[in-house]
């Protein structure tokens, strides 16, 4: 004989089981390393909180690139302001540019699209000149200490994949990860302090690889929940905490291998996976560091993962003047 409480719990469990059977992969266990792709609808909104008064305001919003790793379709933009689509000359990043002398509190710029984000693998890029990715940004210079360390680590190894793996393992074993901070991604400081987040991990990886004459590309985006824990819908803030970077290094024959050192640090179970693959828990927004937007911004820009704004050439204050929200609706997970 079951009591009323057990009956209710049993009924709920049966209902839940029926829902799992009748729905899709979301309710089933998902192995992040085995997922092939995640499809989702994205709504990215920049909301004005406290607008600057009597100032000329420029706003740049990154447009996520459409490529073999992430298929972007149905892109639409909603804003009372007129805008133009532009592209930066050095990195090819596409963006929306808005100019206005009047913003009102509560007004928004909304970009919607559907994205199929694939698990990234080694990719061929014949349109790319690898040598241009041997140029460190102002934050990625290396010193004699870094050079000596890399020499002792790599010794006589010349294969870029084996060199990459040695550096990757050494960084994971030696560095500490911090999440609630906004990084500058300075290689020398990371080497000395041994604590940082994705930008610091990847700046140092990039410096060490470039020192060994291996070209490394910098990619920037926003981190989303892993397929194993993603809800059917949710929201992340597109800010410096949720911004995420990763890199790809040249392995020869115009082939580039992705690496995510900081996520490998955070997810030891994915350590081997992240040397050569990228989980489908991200949206790529831009390439490179030290970016000059189009039209050019007044202040230096380290990376470009989310909407940036200036008033009379002064950067607006994130969280005070404006905020970026990214809503997602997970449509399908291909395992």
């Amino acid at each position: 004989m079951i009591n009323r409480r057990e009956f209710v719990i049993g009924s709920l469990m049966l209902t839940g089981y029926a829902a799992m059977e009748g729905s899709n992969v979301f309710a089933l266990p998902v192995n992040d390393a085995k997922v092939k792709a995640v499809s989702m609808k994205i709504t990215c909104t920049m909301e004005v909180l406290k607008p600057p008064r009597n100032k000329n305001i420029n706003i740049w919003t990154p447009i996520p690139p459409d490529n073999s790793e992430q298929k972007i379709s149905g892109l639409s933009v909603k804003s009372r302001m007129q805008y133009k689509m532009t592209e930066d000359i050095s990195h090819g990043n596409r963006m929306l540019f808005f100019n206005t002398d009047k913003l009102t509190a509560g007004e928004t710029i909304t970009m919607k699209y559907t994205m199929v984000r694939r698990t990234a693998d080694v990719v061929e890029d014949r349109g790319e000149r690898p040598e241009r990715h041997l140029e460190p940004s102002e934050w990625e210079r290396w010193d004699d200490n870094i050079a000596r360390y890399v020499d002792s680590l790599v010794v006589k190894e010349s294969d870029p994949v084996r060199i990459g793996r040695k550096i990757y393992d050494a960084l994971i074993d030696s560095l500490n990860y911090i999440h609630e901070a906004c990084g500058r991604g300075v290689s020398i400081l990371m080497f000395e302090e041994k604590i940082g987040r994705c930008d610091e991990f990847h700046a140092l990886f990039r410096s060490m690889m470039m020192y060994k004459k291996i070209p490394v590309k910098w990619e920037q985006g926003i981190a989303l929940p892993y397929p194993s824990v993603i809800k059917k819908s949710g929201e992340v803030e597109a800010d410096c905490i949720n911004a995420h970077s990763w890199v790809k290094f040249h392995v020869g024959d115009n082939k580039w291998m992705p690496v995510d050192v900081s996520e490998a640090k955070r997810r030891p179970d994915l350590r081997d996976f992240y040397f050569g693959k990228l989980a489908a828990n991200r949206i790529k927004m831009s390439n490179g560091r030290g970016i000059t937007l189009n039209p050019p911004q007044k202040s230096p820009m380290n990376t470009f993962p989310y909407t940036y704004a200036e008033a009379d050439g002064m950067p607006l204050i994130y969280g005070h003047n404006y905020k970026n929200r990214m809503k997602y609706e997970a449509v399908k997970i291909e395992a």
Binding site: D239, P315, G319, H320
Partner: peptide, 10 residues
């Protein structure tokens, strides 16, 4: 601090 750090302004 810097201008892009919401945590800092808090």
């Amino acid at each position: 601090t810097h201008n892009a750090c919401f945590y800092c302004t808090q």
